[in-house]
Design a protein around this nucleic acid. Structure first.
Length: 293
DNA sequence: ACTATATCCTGTATGC
DNA sequence: TGCATACAGGATATAG
């Protein structure tokens, strides 16, 4: 699942392969990835021809590929989106959805996406910051990221801490894998009310999230299968460094107890039952008690 | 304004 | 072998 480190790996690959290149033609092979474009796949393809890419940018898991004319191609990888560079004569990978050819005749840019939760759209005037991304919070890799401000936002939420970590409007870039890893590092249960944390613990959690993701970026990201690869089709190696995610039944590397998997928010949460104890009472239980009194 | 949930989508793994 | 079901989980629309 591409989260912040994986999306940054992709951004860097795109930077190396797209800069100053001009689009000759675009072919949309499946309409779903361009569903947000108002004039449909044909309009999407036509409006892109002739545009010249500049430096790709990113906020959290959103990528945008600015054009020299001030607009941008906005991209989200969703669950399984990939950008790949291939010669036009190379066979198409399964689930290839969009093809971009360039005037220089060099490698094609291909958007491949099995589950199609992600997609491409055109952001008019979005070269600097697409309006579609304006509501997304800064990510921990952003030079403008303010830890104290993020701590304050976490403490203002009534939800469990993992819900808050996954909320891209508070801090962006964190998905299920790095949320579980950060919670393991910080020894926190996913249901701990965000409001109950001290500033110190909330800060430590954010630092842990940031450090885990930096470590993942350094080795090319986390890959479990062929659904996340860089623009050359290569996998990352961070799965070997995970402490919680995907380790059901395996010993906690801190205390030795088997990691458990629990259903949470329509997905799985992994935690150590020894190091990450459930909070004494959920906020819902407490408010019920207050009401009863 | 905040919070929680249903929904989208397809390949792979598993159970009967 | 075939068929059904569970699972992977991003962001968003919608309901409360």
């Amino acid at each position: 699942m591409p989260e912040l480190p994986e999306v940054e790996v992709v951004r860097r690959g795109l930077a190396a392969g797209l800069r100053s290149r001009t689009i000759a033609a675009v072919e949309v092979l499946h309409p779903r990835p361009v569903r947000r474009h108002p004039t449909g796949p044909e309009g999407f393809a036509l409006t892109l021809a002739g545009r010249t890419f500049t430096e790709p940018r990113r906020r959290g898991k959103f990528l945008w590929l600015p054009f020299a004319d001030g607009d941008a191609l906005l991209a989200h990888l969703g669950m399984s989106g990939q950008f790949r560079f291939n010669d036009a004569s190379d066979p198409l990978a399964p689930n290839t959805r969009v093809l971009v050819d360039f005037l220089d005749g060099g490698p094609q840019l291909r958007f491949v996406d099995q589950r199609m939760f992600g997609g491409l759209s055109i952001s008019v005037g979005g070269a600097e910051l697409p309006a579609e991304v304006a509501h997304i919070g800064l990510d921990p890799f952003d030079p403008g990221f303010d830890v104290e401000r993020a701590v304050s936002q976490i403490l203002a939420r009534r939800s469990g801490i993992k819900r808050v970590l996954l909320n891209q409007e508070v801090v962006s870039g964190i998905g299920n894998i790095y949320a579980d890893e950060a919670l393991w590092e910080a020894r926190l249960h996913y249901d701990t009310p965000a409001q109950s944390l001290s500033r110190r613990r909330a800060r430590a959690l954010l630092v842990a999230a940031s450090q885990v993701m930096e470590g993942a970026l350094a080795v090319g990201g986390t890959s479990f299968d062929a659904l996340y690869v860089n623009v050359n089709g290569a996998s990352g190696y961070f799965d070997r460094s995970l402490h919680a995610y995907g380790r059901e039944g395996q010993a906690c590397r801190r205390c030795g107890r088997p990691i458990v998997r629990e259903a949470f928010m329509n997905r799985s949460s992994y935690r150590c039952p020894g190091c990450q104890r459930a909070p004494r009472a959920s906020s819902a239980q407490r408010s019920t008690r207050v009401t009863a009194l």
